[in-house]
């Protein structure tokens, strides 16, 4: 290039401490990615506990995982994967400046997340009903292993923490819908949509690990 293009028109950033909109976009994207790294490590601790106990008591994990309902687990997997698709479509819509499409796709994602939580509720209710509670409160005698309570402690911790993340995701998307209706987003500024989308993919990916690790052992 012969001429340095310093006179290129820069977009004004949303927040004044950035030099321009590019810097702001890059910064917020990087921030979300780093946040996702911490999320992975957060779950990583639970995965480590899982790995340790599975290495110590492999037979326990095979026996106890039979108690989990593979069918509804699989349905939930499909539900979450679909929601990842719709959230990606939401980002696509806002990039094309189709705010209506954005809102519709967000609503679909929220409903799918809701379906996931309802199914999860019935799974929990069934287990709690027969005495499959974490740790010290475990009273079920269907699994013939003295450490069966520990498997379900890990199960509840992992899926519970994941469920909390789903709930957080739902709130974030409701907030996005509200902001979108007020006309905050456009193809020029959609950092929060992008960030929430990345977060939602992570929640999805964690479930894709949890499902085989907990439900599909044999």
């Amino acid at each position: 290039m012969a001429q340095p293009s310093l006179s290129v028109k820069k977009e004004k950033p949303e927040h004044h401490h950035f030099v321009d909109a590019d810097q702001q976009f890059e910064a917020s994207k990087m921030g979300v990615w780093i946040f996702l790294v911490t999320e992975i490590l957060f779950f990583g601790g639970l995965f480590a506990a899982y790995i340790v106990y599975r290495a110590w008591y492999p037979e326990l994990f095979i026996a106890a995982s039979d108690e989990l309902d593979v069918f509804w687990g699989a349905v939930n997997t499909v539900v979450l994967i679909s929601s990842s698709l719709t959230v990606a479509m939401a980002i696509r819509s806002v990039q094309l400046n189709q705010i209506k499409g954005l809102i519709i796709n967000l609503w679909i994602t929220i409903s799918l997340a809701g379906v996931f939580m309802v199914i999860k509720y019935f799974e929990y209710a069934e287990k709690i009903g027969k005495g499959v509670l974490p740790g010290a409160h475990y009273t079920y005698d269907g699994v013939d292993h003295e450490k069966a309570n520990i498997f379900f402690s890990i199960y509840y911790m992992m899926t519970g923490l994941h469920g909390i993340h789903v709930l957080v995701g739902i709130s974030l998307m409701l907030w996005l819908v509200w902001k979108a209706k007020k006309g905050h987003f456009s193809s020029k500024y959609y950092n929060p949509v992008e960030g929430t989308g990345l977060y939602w993919h992570l929640v999805d990916i964690i479930w894709i690990f949890l499902f085989p690790l907990l439900y599909l052992i044999d």
Partner: peptide
């Protein structure tokens, strides 16, 4: 964070890990 959460749950629910 996850360690302390597990410890908190240990006392709250007795998860036993």
């Amino acid at each position: 964070a996850i360690t302390l959460l597990l410890l908190t749950m240990e006392r709250l629910l007795g998860i036993g890990i």
